[in-house]
Amino acid sequence: MITIFKTFGGCTEIKSVQPGCWIHVVEPTQNEIECLTEQFQLPNDTISDILDADERPRVEYDDDWSLVIMRIPIRTTNNGVPYQTVPLGIYLTNNFTLSLCMCDNQVLPVDQACVYKDPMHSVNDATNFILQLFLRSGNLYMKYLKHINQMTNLIEQDLEKSIKNRELNQLLKLEKCMVFFITSIKANEIVLAKIRNSKRINNEINEDLLEDAIIENKQALEMGKIYSDIQSGMMDAFASVISNNLNLVMKQLTLISIILMIPTLIASIFGMNVPNSFENSSMAMPLIIIVSLILSIFGVLLFRKRQWF
């Protein structure tokens, strides 16, 4: 989907390219990719790089254009992993600025691409537009990290009484999200440093906005590291808890088998086809049952005294 806006605010949509406009591209089809190369003169390798899910963040310069690639978080259901990161490319030229992403996202959503809350706010500086995207990306990272932490707390409650690996598998997928996030945030931090030190795209840069973006990115990185360390320790601890819970179940089943073995043993002895003193007694059956119950209860009390039950 290709949408053209008059300014970077994403409030006024236009139908054709004009100087200073912003072209917003999300989930491009093959025909739209051909349009980007033919009409907007984007290099094929640049489009391929941005649409590559494993592309690393970077800043690239040419005589007529500049390219900034960052990684942003998205929701996903791929293999049960709730979140992952994808590249978002911003292509800068003298006539227009183009943002390109392989899928819909919350940094620049398809249905509401407006970057600023004030719809009347007009922004004409491409560099500050990029910083605004970094700031929104950092906020989104922290939002998703908090949600991952909430999911971890819910799984933790189930892990305390679990004897299966389902909860550990869920934690493993959340840990995978943490690795995606931390790696991407670190790479974004390097890109922000390059933008700060660049002499080509830092003209009239908003220092306050740059500082906010850097602080937000660092805060998201620190939060990701803390949550990742907590999850790593939790997985090690609860792996032992699951093993211990399984041992307790096996011990209880063994004790139950021992208790059930007592009446079985007595019934087997008196059920043998050999003479005994009770074969002609009318009280033999009730007496055997009573003795079996007494010995079974005695075994239960003995185990409880030793705190095996």
Rank of each mutant, 00 (worst) to 15 (best):
159 L>T: 13
145 L>D: 14
124 N>D: 14
130 I>C: 11
132 Q>K: 11
125 D>I: 12
130 I>A: 01
146 K>R: 14
156 E>K: 13
170 Q>M: 06
135 L>F: 04
141 Y>S: 15
139 N>E: 06
131 L>P: 10
162 S>D: 11
164 K>V: 04
128 N>V: 04
138 G>S: 15
175 E>P: 06
172 L>I: 01
152 T>W: 08
139 N>G: 05
149 N>W: 13
133 L>N: 08
171 L>H: 10
169 N>E: 07
178 M>W: 05
177 C>I: 03
153 N>S: 07
146 K>G: 12
130 I>S: 01
136 R>F: 05
141 Y>I: 02
149 N>C: 04
135 L>H: 08
158 D>Q: 13
136 R>V: 06
174 L>R: 07
156 E>G: 09
140 L>Y: 05
153 N>Y: 14
176 K>E: 02
127 T>D: 09
161 K>N: 12
177 C>L: 05
129 F>L: 11
148 I>L: 05
150 Q>Y: 15
161 K>M: 03
170 Q>I: 00
156 E>V: 05
155 I>R: 06
157 Q>L: 11
135 L>P: 11
158 D>R: 14
152 T>K: 09
152 T>F: 14
124 N>H: 15
137 S>M: 08
124 N>P: 14
151 M>P: 06
131 L>R: 05
131 L>F: 07
165 N>R: 07
131 L>E: 06
171 L>G: 00
128 N>Y: 04
177 C>R: 00
136 R>P: 10
158 D>W: 13
156 E>S: 07
125 D>H: 07
178 M>D: 08
136 R>A: 12
151 M>Y: 08
142 M>T: 14
155 I>Q: 09
148 I>Y: 02
140 L>V: 11
178 M>C: 13
156 E>W: 04
135 L>M: 02
148 I>Q: 04
146 K>F: 15
135 L>G: 00
171 L>T: 05
127 T>F: 02
167 E>G: 10
147 H>W: 14
144 Y>G: 01
148 I>A: 08
132 Q>S: 14
150 Q>A: 03
140 L>W: 00
132 Q>P: 11
139 N>C: 10
128 N>S: 00
155 I>G: 12
178 M>L: 10
162 S>G: 09
124 N>T: 15
